[in-house]
Measured scan of single mutants.
Amino acid sequence: NNDALSPAIRRLLAEHNLDASAIKGTGVGGRLTREDVEKHLAKA
């Protein structure tokens, strides 16, 4: 659900052409954090 993404996370996802649903969020309520996105990028 993109409504739960902060603007910074949306921008980071867009810059790397990532789909938020492909990344498991570890923030409050399962929200994506910058660390989640960076860890996903490091794996790729």
Rank of each mutant, 00 (worst) to 15 (best):
N1W: 12
N1K: 07
N1E: 14
N1I: 13
N1H: 14
N1T: 14
N1M: 13
N1G: 13
N1Y: 07
N1F: 09
N1S: 14
N2A: 14
N2L: 14
N2D: 15
N2S: 13
N2Q: 13
N2C: 07
N2W: 05
N2K: 12
N2P: 13
N2I: 15
N2V: 14
N2T: 14
D3S: 10
D3E: 12
D3C: 08
D3Q: 12
D3A: 10
D3Y: 03
D3R: 08
D3H: 12
D3I: 11
A4I: 13
A4H: 14
A4P: 11
A4W: 15
A4F: 14
A4G: 13
A4Q: 13
A4M: 13
A4N: 13
A4Y: 15
A4K: 12
A4R: 13
A4V: 12
L5F: 07
L5Y: 06
L5E: 06
L5N: 05
L5D: 06
S6H: 10
S6N: 07
S6G: 08
S6Q: 06
S6P: 12
S6Y: 05
S6I: 05
S6T: 12
S6A: 08
P7F: 05
P7T: 10
P7K: 09
P7M: 10
P7L: 12
P7S: 10
P7A: 14
P7I: 11
P7D: 15
P7Q: 12
A8E: 15
A8L: 09
A8Q: 09
A8Y: 11
A8K: 06
A8I: 09
A8G: 07
A8H: 10
A8F: 08
I9K: 01
I9H: 03
I9T: 04
I9G: 01
I9Q: 03
I9A: 03
I9R: 01
I9F: 04
I9P: 00
I9D: 05
I9L: 13
R10M: 12
R10Q: 14
R10P: 02
R10S: 07
R10N: 10
R10W: 08
R10V: 14
R10H: 10
R10K: 14
R10A: 11
R11A: 15
R11W: 15
R11N: 15
R11F: 14
R11H: 15
R11P: 05
L12A: 06
L12N: 01
L12W: 07
L12S: 03
L12H: 05
L12K: 04
L12D: 02
L12C: 09
L12Y: 05
L13W: 02
L13Q: 00
L13S: 00
L13D: 00
L13H: 00
L13T: 01
L13G: 00
L13F: 05
L13I: 07
L13Y: 02
L13R: 00
A14Y: 09
A14L: 12
A14T: 08
A14K: 13
A14C: 05
A14S: 08
A14D: 10
E15N: 08
E15L: 15
E15I: 14
E15Y: 14
E15W: 13
E15G: 05
H16P: 00
H16I: 04
H16V: 03
H16M: 06
H16D: 00
H16R: 04
H16S: 04
H16K: 04
N17M: 08
N17A: 08
N17S: 07
N17V: 04
N17C: 10
N17Q: 10
N17G: 15
N17L: 05
N17H: 11
L18Q: 03
L18N: 01
L18T: 05
L18Y: 03
L18H: 02
L18W: 03
L18P: 00
L18E: 02
L18A: 04
D19F: 06
D19L: 12
D19R: 07
D19E: 10
D19C: 12
D19V: 11
D19T: 11
D19H: 10
D19S: 12
D19G: 04
D19P: 08
D19Q: 11
D19A: 09
D19N: 11
D19I: 09
A20V: 09
A20I: 09
A20W: 07
A20P: 14
A20Q: 07
A20M: 06
A20K: 05
A20L: 08
A20H: 06
S21T: 12
S21I: 07
S21W: 09
S21Q: 11
S21E: 09
S21G: 11
S21R: 10
S21F: 08
S21H: 09
S21Y: 06
A22C: 04
A22L: 13
A22Y: 07
A22F: 08
A22K: 12
A22W: 10
A22D: 14
A22P: 02
A22S: 13
I23D: 00
I23M: 07
I23P: 01
I23G: 01
I23A: 01
I23W: 05
I23K: 00
I23N: 00
I23E: 00
K24Q: 14
K24Y: 07
K24P: 09
K24R: 13
K24W: 07
K24D: 06
G25Q: 03
G25R: 05
G25W: 02
G25K: 05
G25P: 09
G25M: 03
G25H: 06
G25L: 03
G25I: 04
G25Y: 02
G25T: 04
T26H: 05
T26N: 03
T26Q: 04
T26P: 01
T26M: 03
T26D: 02
T26F: 03
T26L: 03
T26S: 10
T26G: 03
G27F: 02
G27N: 02
G27W: 02
G27S: 03
G27I: 02
G27H: 02
G27V: 01
G27K: 01
G27E: 02
G27A: 04
V28F: 11
V28H: 11
V28E: 14
V28D: 11
V28Q: 11
V28K: 12
V28R: 11
V28T: 10
V28G: 08
V28W: 10
V28I: 14
V28L: 13
V28S: 08
V28N: 08
V28Y: 10
G29N: 12
G29F: 06
G29R: 06
G29W: 04
G29Q: 07
G29Y: 05
G29L: 07
G30L: 02
G30H: 04
G30A: 04
G30W: 01
G30N: 05
G30E: 04
G30T: 03
G30M: 03
G30P: 01
R31M: 13
R31A: 15
R31I: 11
R31N: 08
R31T: 13
R31W: 05
R31G: 07
L32Y: 02
L32N: 00
L32A: 03
L32V: 12
L32H: 02
L32G: 00
L32T: 04
L32Q: 01
L32E: 00
T33V: 05
T33Y: 01
T33M: 05
T33G: 01
T33D: 02
T33E: 04
T33H: 02
T33W: 01
T33A: 02
R34V: 15
R34N: 07
R34G: 05
R34L: 15
R34A: 10
R34H: 09
E35N: 08
E35Q: 11
E35V: 07
E35P: 05
E35H: 09
E35L: 10
E35T: 09
E35W: 10
E35K: 09
D36E: 02
D36H: 01
D36F: 00
D36V: 00
D36Q: 01
D36K: 00
D36P: 00
V37A: 04
V37R: 00
V37L: 07
V37M: 03
V37Q: 00
V37H: 00
V37S: 00
V37K: 00
V37I: 14
V37E: 00
E38K: 08
E38M: 14
E38I: 15
E38Y: 14
E38N: 07
E38V: 11
E38A: 08
E38T: 08
E38D: 07
E38Q: 09
E38L: 15
E38S: 06
E38R: 08
K39A: 14
K39W: 11
K39S: 11
K39G: 09
K39R: 15
K39N: 14
K39T: 10
K39L: 14
K39C: 12
K39Q: 12
L41V: 10
L41F: 05
L41N: 01
L41R: 02
L41W: 04
L41S: 02
L41Q: 02
L41G: 01
L41P: 00
L41E: 01
A42N: 10
A42I: 11
A42E: 11
A42L: 13
A42V: 08
A42P: 04
A42W: 08
A42T: 08
A42Y: 09
A42R: 11
A42F: 08
A42C: 06
K43G: 12
K43W: 12
K43A: 14
K43H: 14
K43Q: 14
K43F: 12
K43N: 14
A44T: 13
A44G: 12
A44N: 14
A44L: 15
A44E: 11
A44Y: 14
A44R: 09
